[in-house]
Amino acid sequence: MNKRILLLTALILPILALMASAYLKSAQRSSGEQVILPIEGFDPRDLLSGHYLIYQVDYGLETGCTEHDVETSICLRPQRQMFAADALPEDCTLFIRGYCDGSADFRAGIERFYIPEEYAEALEKQVRDKRGELVLSVDSQGNAAIRDLLINGKPWQETVQP
C-alpha cells in the first residue's frame, strides 16, 4: 500500500474512532427511557475525588448484592428487585445491567459525575445531605447513561453557586 495512503489512514482512524465513541455515548444518552434515582455519599471522605463526585445510587431495594464479582441486573419495572444477569424475568420491562463488585456494591458505570472544581464543595454538601438525584437514560438492553444531576429536583447549575 502507498505509504501516504497508509499515513492518511493512520491519521483518520483515531479521529473516526473518537467521533464514533462520542456519537455512541450521545446516542445512548438521548435515546433511552428517562429514569430518576436518588444518590447519596457512602463515605464522606471519598465523596469528592478530583473533578468528579462519586456516590452510591439508591435503587430502592430492600436487599443488595449477596455475591461478589457477578454480573447482575436490577429490574426497575414492574417491581424493583435484583437478579443474576441470566435470571432476569421476562416480564421485567425496564432494567439496569451491572455487576456486584468485590465490596458487594452494585455498579453500573454511573457512579461518577464530573463537575467543575469551583462547584465541588457546594455540590458535595448537597449530595451528602441527600438532596441529589441522578437523571439517567436506560435503553432496552439495560445500559444506563447519565443525563444530568439534580439538586432539590432542579439541574445542579441552577441551584449551586461556586
Binding site: 499515513l7 493512520a10 482512524l13 474512532a17 462520542a22 455515548k25 450521545s26 454511573i110 461518577r112 447519565i146
Partner: peptide
C-alpha cells in the same frame, strides 16, 4: 474530554489501551 462530557465511569487503563489501539498505526 468524552469521558467528562458523558460522565463515563471507566477505568484509566481501558482508556490507555483504547488510546494505544487507535494511535498504533501512526
Amino acid at each position: 474530554l468524552i469521558s467528562q462530557i458523558f460522565h463515563v465511569g471507566g477505568q484509566w487503563y481501558h482508556a490507555l489501551l483504547f488510546w494505544a489501539a487507535i494511535t498504533f498505526l501512526l
